[in-house]
């Protein structure tokens, strides 16, 4: 059975990462549908190491197409508690489901106030449209 992704509450960064803020003890992080499309076919994913402590904005991994590599920055500080190892074997999962099965890592958020500065889905959509217009 598929879990209902629509129930997740996500916030986005200007670097096109998302974070599920419904459970800050174990918040999923990934790249947005917009970013996955712009990147093209993902052929390699570098995941962070579990138990790593990170600060907001740190590079915690990378997604790569044949053409280019993009760092993934964590939207908030915390400790990496789980990584999506499926992506090592099937990096294309990021293209198929960037905001669902293609999550990268789960983080235990240190300071939940850091979540407040992020964009909600609507603000992010407006942001990407603005980027497109430029």
């Amino acid at each position: 059975m598929r879990r209902r992704r629509a129930a997740l509450e996500k916030k986005y960064t200007e670097d096109h990462e998302w974070i599920d803020i419904s459970s800050p003890e174990s918040a999923s992080i990934g790249i947005s549908t917009y970013a996955a499309k712009a990147l093209g076919d993902v052929v390699y994913v570098e995941l962070p190491t579990v138990d790593t402590e990170v600060n907001k904005g740190d590079a915690i991994g990378a997604v790569e197409s044949v053409k280019s590599a993009s760092d993934i920055m964590t939207p908030v500080g915390g400790t990496i508690i789980e990584v999506n190892s499926v992506l090592e074997e099937k990096p294309g999962t990021i293209n198929k489901s960037p905001e669902g099965d293609g999550w990268l890592a789960k983080i235990k958020v240190t300071d939940t106030t850091e979540l407040e500065g992020l964009m909600d889905a609507e603000a992010y959509r407006a942001f990407t449209e603005e980027v497109e217009d430029k």
Partner: peptide, 13 residues
């Protein structure tokens, strides 16, 4: 262009 709409970069390769 980097690629054409009909084929992605790896597919075109």
């Amino acid at each position: 262009p980097l690629s054409y709409p009909s084929l992605s970069h790896p597919a075109s390769h």
